[in-house]
Every structure is written in structure tokens, then in C-alpha cells.
Design a protein around this nucleic acid. Structure first.
Lengths: 318, 318
DNA sequence: TCGCTCGATGATCAAATGATCGAACAAAAA
DNA sequence: TTTTTGTTCGATCATTTGATCATCGAGCGA
């Protein structure tokens, strides 16, 4: 695939001329010696491959106010609030992903070895995809959540693989379902040497980037068949509103002890006590779940959007 | 000017939707409740104010090769080679400025107090203008070159002011012309308490970002009347090919001792010995001047373009 | 060697964008 | 109150961009 490299090179050059230099596609075409549609294709490639990173360098006043309020109220280290796109669906995580990637890049920039743990979810996955390629073979990435479903298929929202590919770092995946079929199965899983080794690496991580899940009929946990309908009903009856790493919690952010909790294989949240736990979640519907995680005092950092931030602020004010 | 702030806010929002979200101007218009041309104006404003930062995240193979060669040959810490735009004039420093700003940002990111010194020139000026706004009141910036011309007017290419404004940092300007009228004047200037105080701060700087000047009829030093035509002739007769901070040097990078040198008020290059000296210069015509600075071993880092890099590589190979 | 398939290329057109210009509006002065 | 001046806004048009489609040529098997 040397040909492809060459093409990317040219695409990067076209992108320079277009985005940094502000040339028109016609000018670029004559410079690179290709037709105008050729430039078109190069630029499309450059964007698709994530070669072009755009950063809007202005703190939106409304977002800043909410961000500050949340940092104050919940004692966070930081809170990024990205503007919401009223037209985009609630599940459009692109804006979050870009902002999250910038936070993540700050950690990765370091040249000393770093161990970082990741949760799963669309937001986390999109975040690592939005990240720049960056050579950091000294780092290690480890998943905090089992990455196989009950049917044995791998979790398509796992970010560790992509991130390790982009950086050339070592990767550690948790070979388990999020929720085991029974307490015995969980114990058997956790007894495995491999599982324990990965968990140990996870405990050494300095920081964790995780998603926040809702608990309702549209919960990822339910939709991706990590829990059954009966189990969902059980959680709802116990007033669960959100989950971190599969641990369901109530409005106050307390982990709910129930038949499901006893079968969750993820690392216990307490084990991450000294890590910087950074959550990535947005959309108005996720407001209650995010609020719950904040109330529980689990988080050190939050990347969210205007919609969720507004919900949080308004709920606090009561 | 609160109205203006509001406008910038909206411009930033429009830029988010357009650049990060990829919406069309029509969609943005209906969301922000303005007309399509209104969005047009907002986006133009956002770009003009430098709210939109674009980064092409791909190492161009040809540039990387030259960069590595230069780092190796001259023992630099780094060398960034940006692609040249064949259509842009040799004096277009925009690409250099963007790359330089990224290097500069790495220093500024630090939260501990930092003292940084700056030379002058269009490239340096453009670099600080390309930089993101960033709150760093703990830093200090100091100019290494006198920033008044013989007629008493201030140097329009001084970057310290702009940089200090953008960061809220302290600023130290050297209250002197680059080249004094006479040796006595130079000594009088350097005897001033203010001058000595600023020079002392400059000596404490950790790193310096400077330009590289040519010595010919198109030299900034000459065009901006820092030296007269007779003085230029004198320098050319002594085989000067470039200058750093106003210190003229020959092909081997040795500072030339002559009537002009004895009147230059800038800090002596030796005084910066332990600082990281980063130079910013490009264009084919500047090749000899850049090469001379490299030969002299003055630099720790270089940001240049393909044209100059090619000239340097080819000259070395002989 | 011929014919087939697949991928790349350039012509063409619709959509989106940037720029100009005149109208409307507001503020200030007569 | 009227006029003038300066500014903002939106209609319109030229330019640029993105996408489709037909064509061409290289590679591969018969």
C-alpha cells in the first residue's frame, strides 16, 4: 500500500494549500498537476482520514458560565461544555468527540510512559476516532469494561483498539461480558489469571475516560443486550437513572446493590479512587444520568454539551 | 464594546456549526435566526479574528526527510519544514507563522511561570498573530532587539506587545534602536538602568524565538532604515550573508566585527548560550542566511519551508 | 489475444459560497 | 422636525465546490 501513502501525502499537501493557504481548488489543481475533481477527491480523502483538524478558539460565553458553575458545584478539575447543534439528533456525539479528543491529547502528549483506562460507548469510540495519529509506543491503554457481549461478539464501541492502533501503544482488553450470567460465572471470570492481570494494569492507570449510560428503554446496556428486559425493569424499579462502567446508580449517585450489580464484571468504581475519572456524555436525555454521576462525586472531569449542562444547572438550582 | 463580544460569540457558534459540524450556511442561518449573508459575515469575522485554527495532521514525506537531515547535520532539537506554496510570493510567511505558533504554544501551555524572549521581523510578528488567545498571566515576554527606529518610531514587527496582550503576561521592551548612531550612544543606552533591567530579564529567558535576516538590498535591516546604504555596502564588502538580532555574520556563521557590529545594541548572541534559540525563516532567498546561522551553531530549533530547506540540503551536500 | 471487470479519470451540472450593491434604519446635527 | 451621515441588512449574481455519470485504460482470466 505504498501507493496509498503517496496519495495521502498529496492529500495532505492539498489540504495545506486549501485550508491553511486558502487557495481555490483550481489553483491547487494546477500546482499539483491534477484535474480539479482530482483535488476534490484528495480533499475529501484528507477529511475522511482525519488529516484536517479544526479548532474553534473562542470560549462561548453561555457555555463558559455553565462550565464554571458545574466545576464549582461538583468540585471538578474541569468541565468542557460544547455548543449543541439543535438540528443534530441527541445522539450526535461528534462535537463531544472533538472536545474529548483535545482533552485526551493533553495526556497523550507526554513523552513519559502513561497508563490510561477507557470505558466504552459511542462517545468514547468517537473520541478516539477524532484523535490525531500520534506516535506514543511507550503508553498503555486498558479497557475498564468487558468487551464481549453475551453472544461472544466483541463490543463495537470499544476504544482501546483504535487508540492503541493510532499510537502504537500496548493494549489490554478485559476478556469478559459486562454483566455475567450468574454470580458464579462472574467469580470464575475474575479468577482467571488473564482477567486479573488486565485488572491490575487498569488499577495502575492515571486517568480514565468513560461514558455515562442512561437506564431506560433506550439504554445502551439494554439495546446491545448486555442486560435483558426483565433486568431493565428491575433496575427501573430500584430507581436507577444512570450507570458508569455498567454500575447502575440512583439519583444521588449511589451504586445500587441488586442482582445485576453482583454480576457486573467491570472494575469497581472505588478501585479507581485515585485516578482522574473523566466522563464524556451529552444530550438532554442524558442529563439525569450525568447529574447522578456528579452527585455521587465519582468524576474529576466532564465533557458535555449545552443541553445536558443546562439540565444539570436547572436541576441543581432547586 | 459589549456588542462586539456578543457578535464574536455568535461568530464562534457559527464557526462551530460550520467547521466542526459541517452544516451549510443555510442551516446555520435558520438556527441562529439570521439571514444567510449574515452567517457569511459571521464566518468571515471568525476567520479574520483568528477564531478558526486548522491543523493538517500528516507528516509530508518530503518535508520529513529534509527536516531529519537538517536536525542530524546541525544537531538541532527540532526542525519543522512546512510545504511551500509555489504561487505565494517568497515573502508570504503565513505557513511559517502557523507552524511557529504551534511550537510557541508548546512553551506557553506550561502553567509554571516562563520567561521567553522574542526577536523581531515579519515572521515573528505573524507567528504571534497566528497564536491562539491563551490566559497565562504568570509568563513574561521580553524583546531581544531594540524596538525603536532611528526616527523614534516603534518597530512594527515587534511581537512582544501582541503576545503579551494575548496572554495577559508581563512585557519588557528594549528601549533602543537596533543600531545606535555611534559607539558612544550605544554605551550611553546600555548604561541606562532601564536598559540593563530589560537585558537582565532577557538573559533569564528559557527560550528565544527569533527571525533570520538577509544582508542584501532587500534586507529588513536596510529597508526599514536601521542601517544606511553606506553601512549596507560595508557589510556586503565584508561578505555578510545574514544576521541574527542585528548581528551580521558570514557564511561560516561567525559574527563579523566591524563598525556596525560595535554599535548594535541587541543582546550578544553568546549571552543566550544556554537558551533554546528557535529561528523562524523561509523562502529560497533566505537560504544562505539560514544556512549561515546553522553553520555558526547558534540555533537549537528551526521552523522553515521547503524552499529554504532544499537550498540548505543542497548546499551541505557539496 | 480477446473480452471482461474494476478502478481511476475527467466532463457536466446542481448546490453552496462569497461579494457587490442598493435600501432601510438609526444616530447625530442643523 | 428634517437632513445628513454612517452602518447594517438582505437581494442578487458570479465564483467555487461537491456529486454524478459516462468513459477510458489497466489488469486478469479464458
Amino acid at each position: 500500500m505504498d501507493k496509498y501513502e503517496l496519495k495521502l501525502d498529496q492529500a495532505a499537501r492539498a489540504a495545506w494549500l486549501s485550508y491553511v493557504g486558502g487557495r481555490t481548488q483550481d489553483e491547487i489543481a494546477s500546482q499539483l498537476g491534477v484535474s480539479r475533481p482530482g483535488v476534490q477527491r484528495l480533499l475529501a480523502l484528507a477529511r475522511q482520514e482525519g488529516l484536517v483538524k479544526v479548532h474553534i478558539d473562542h470560549p462561548l460565553a453561555s457555555c463558559m458560565v455553565m462550565s464554571d458553575a458545574i466545576v464549582q458545584r461538583f468540585g471538578l478539575d474541569f468541565c468542557d461544555v460544547v455548543p449543541a447543534d439543535p438540528d443534530a439528533s441527541d445522539s450526535d456525539v461528534h462535537y463531544l468527540a472533538v472536545a474529548g479528543a483535545e482533552r485526551l491529547a493533553r495526556y497523550l502528549d507526554r513523552s513519559e510512559p502513561l497508563t490510561l483506562s477507557l470505558g466504552t460507548g459511542r462517545a468514547i469510540r468517537a473520541m478516539v476516532e477524532a484523535l490525531s495519529r500520534l506516535d506514543r509506543p511507550q503508553h498503555r491503554f486498558v479497557s475498564l469494561v468487558g468487551n464481549v457481549a453475551r453472544d461472544g461478539s466483541s463490543n463495537r464501541y470499544d476504544g482501546v483498539m483504535v487508540l492503541a492502533d493510532k499510537t502504537g501503544a500496548e493494549r489490554f482488553l478485559l476478556p469478559a461480558p459486562v454483566v455475567a450470567g450468574s454470580v458464579e460465572e462472574k467469580q470464575a471470570l475474575q479468577g482467571q489469571r488473564l482477567f486479573q492481570a488486565v485488572a491490575e494494569v487498569a488499577r495502575q492507570a492515571e486517568a480514565a475516560f468513560i461514558g455515562i449510560g442512561r437506564i431506560d428503554r433506550r439504554a445502551t446496556l439494554f439495546q446491545d443486550h448486555f442486560i435483558s428486559e426483565t433486568e431493565l425493569e428491575e433496575l427501573l424499579a430500584l430507581e436507577a437513572v444512570g450507570e458508569l462502567l455498567g454500575w447502575p446508580m440512583n439519583q444521588a449517585g449511589e451504586v445500587i446493590d441488586c442482582s445485576i450489580t453482583r454480576r457486573v464484571t467491570s472494575l469497581p468504581l472505588e478501585a479507581l479512587g485515585d485516578q482522574s475519572l473523566v466522563a464524556l456524555a451529552g444530550g438532554h436525555d442524558k442529563g439525569p444520568a450525568i447529574l447522578s454521576s456528579l452527585q455521587g462525586g465519582w468524576l474529576k472531569g466532564l465533557v458535555t454539551d449545552e443541553r445536558a449542562a443546562r439540565h444539570i444547572i436547572e436541576s441543581c438550582r432547586l
